[in-house]
Design a protein around this nucleic acid. Structure first.
Lengths: 243, 243
DNA sequence: GGGGTGTATGTCGTAGTTTAATGCAGGGTC
DNA sequence: GACCCTGCATTAAACTACGACATACACCCC
């Protein structure tokens, strides 16, 4: 298993989309109450539940998803070391989505009740938490815009790019290559595309040497070119049989 | 102009999706610094700007949107009395989306710097703000799921339903009918559909007597039936010419 | 009058879904 | 070893929901 660690950083150290100030890094570490290790495939939280604790991801990757009434699944976002998990249960009364680990995952556990205590004693904590949720809200806004306004090819390129940048900002992987331990079905559910179409789109991106994702590794030879595709690629015609 | 007021409630009084505790209602009213009235069509905030204040909507309606690099527009959500506007500018450094009034609008103005002061002196404020952003994040999650996994008909039905419920919870309009001062283009941009397709879908919903939206008024004869459509309507065939 | 804006409907092409079949690896059991 | 699972990537063929385009109509304002 490739090393996907963020040992020195109970929350994320820094991130392209969610840049933390140095002073904010360890704000939650002060009241860590334990650790949890889970196997790949474990469902850490289920929508509707009211867990008495929340977590930060220390190590490993996962995803947040929702199941709709019609049985379909929407992946809200991917989870990386440093992400905050399960705050909704405390804030809204119950979880509004589920969380699943796609690799072995190590989590830092916090008691839900501690949050309110610390909000009172340590106002800067509240500042930070507000900041985090506002940042996540911003990311969700970008996702809404992508699902609403971009074509399939753009969506796939956009997702790969965002994930790559996010991981690189966390110093995970190396220049041009990062681990990406998800199934194509996960990506499809995240982008609102069918598995088949996602697969074909990935194949086309691979052909064009823009991005190649397989065996849990994502390679992006030229980030800038992929960015162009993500933002404004004219939808290419599907590959047709030669005869 | 229909009365769309929330006079006694600087923040929202209550909301189906964002239910406030009584004690949390006036938390921002304590440091209100002025009022602002704008005409319909006014752009209150522009993405990229760094406004020195933020607002709550006292009266009127509007929308939050993003403009993409390809020129397309995504409406993030609709704004109603009680909504919080412009917090991002303070939290993330700059606005990540624009805000436009679609009716005459009265806003309550707050100084951005006051927020941090009050976070320090009044921790319960921080609790409330965190709660608000978490709630908005939850709503965005639902939007992502809708854009990603539902058909055009379901999306339109879903949006009309949500807007209706939200407005009724604010005691705006009356049983079965609420004001909805938006253009079809706004709805289309919110749902990631073309104007034409949105229009035709609305026509079909009207035909089926599920919802009729025109002249700035939305009428829903039977909420439950519309909800069924929103969640699981088998996509109906488009109307075909008889011959 | 003409121009701008918003709603309404029709035709047609295509970007997408659905369904299905195939291949291919790992893992258990005899 | 041969066997049969189960999970995931891949490719093909058929169908369709949706967008693009064109057009018409109503209204308002200069």
């Amino acid at each position: 298993m490739t090393s996907i660690s963020c040992e020195t950083c109970p929350l994320r150290r820094k991130s392209f989309f969610r840049p933390f100030e140095e002073e904010q890094i360890d704000f939650l570490a002060r009241f860590k109450s334990g650790e949890l290790t889970v196997d790949p495939g474990t469902h850490i939280l289920i929508e509707g539940s009211t867990a008495p604790q929340f977590y930060t991801v220390l190590d490993g990757m996962g995803l947040r998803y929702k199941t709709l009434e019609n049985g379909r699944r929407q992946v809200i976002n991917f989870l990386f070391p440093g992400d905050l998990v399960g705050l909704h249960a405390g804030l809204l009364g119950e979880m509004k989505h589920s969380v699943e680990a796609t690799t072995a995952m190590r989590l830092c556990v916090f008691k839900r009740d501690d949050l309110w205590t610390l909000f009172r004693n340590q106002p800067s904590l509240a500042y930070d938490v507000t900041w985090i949720t506002a940042t996540e809200e911003h990311f969700l806004g970008e996702t809404v815009a992508t699902l609403g306004q971009r074509t399939g090819t753009q969506r796939v390129a956009w997702a790969l790019l965002k994930v790559y940048q996010r991981l690189r900002a966390l110093d995970i992987g190396k220049e041009g290559e990062v681990p990406l331990p998800y199934r194509q079905q996960d990506m499809a559910d995240a982008l609102g595309l069918s598995l088949v179409h996602t697969n074909k789109t990935l194949a086309r991106l691979r052909e064009r040497q823009l991005a190649s994702w397989g065996e849990g590794r994502l390679r992006i030879p030229d980030v800038d070119t992929l960015a162009e595709v993500a933002l404004a690629d004219a939808a290419l015609p599907d590959m047709r049989p030669l005869l």
